[in-house]
Amino acid sequence: MANAPPSTLLDEALDGKGAAVFSTSPAAGGRMILVEDCVETSGAFVVHHLLKRCLSPHSSDVVVFLSFANPFSHYDRILRKMGCNLSVQRDNKRLMFLDMLMLERLGRDRGKTSEDVFIALFGEIQKAVELSLSHAGRQHITVIIDDVSLMEVDANGSSNLVLDFLHYCSSLTAQFQGCSLITLNHDDVYSNEDRPGLLLKLEYLADVVIKVEPFSTGLATDVHGQLTVSNKGIHDGSGKSRNKVHNFHFRIKDSSVEYFYPGSKT
């Protein structure tokens, strides 16, 4: 592991060509990335990819992982296969894992309202962000939320509360240059008529939208789906990666994911 891991198409789409290491480039901070998936193709692998990237040994980034979907052991197993040990990272204080599946978390068992729970949750995140950015110079911190629709379930179906919470989280990215926010959401659990609010609002909020969709012409053995990365972030730096839309296919393998342009694979 002497060299930085090879940059994939996904990394390039996120950072622009040439910027292989997302986490250490200063312009990359302060962004919000929204991953949208659907029932046919899960976007979990994108979250794993981004998590691994943030925890890569070449950076000193810190991750706050808010899990509404799976327990720690789930991510630990997957990331271990990808060559990243989450338990070690957690002991190193580089990963702060908030398992929201546990009932007693934030005093939910003591009959607190969901708003109080979310306020307390935000407090924990802000504390972690303040702490990590205060002592080690120019470090980055990434807040990952998996996933928004289950968070809505946790909020007793109040999408407004979820949006308030996400607004506060994204205000952290505005306040602290080194703070990024990554959220996963499901595209197809909202009906268009009654309220496109949550999904649309998230898209307005996000600087980068990664859409994970099944292959447009149906199932295939060697292509598992396609990614569309719309990058509307404004970067003051090179300006390379602004206002770009990338589209490529992916194939999920046992321990990694292969990304390639349509038609470039034989």
Binding site: I119, D164, S171
Partner: peptide, 24 residues
């Protein structure tokens, strides 16, 4: 109205769990 639109942060500051409230 962006930093603290619902008073969450000031609540947290009052309870002592976070420190600053400035927008920077």
């Amino acid at each position: 109205c962006c930093t603290d639109p619902l008073g969450w942060r000031s609540k947290l500051v009052d309870s002592g769990s976070i420190r600053n409230l400035s927008s920077g």
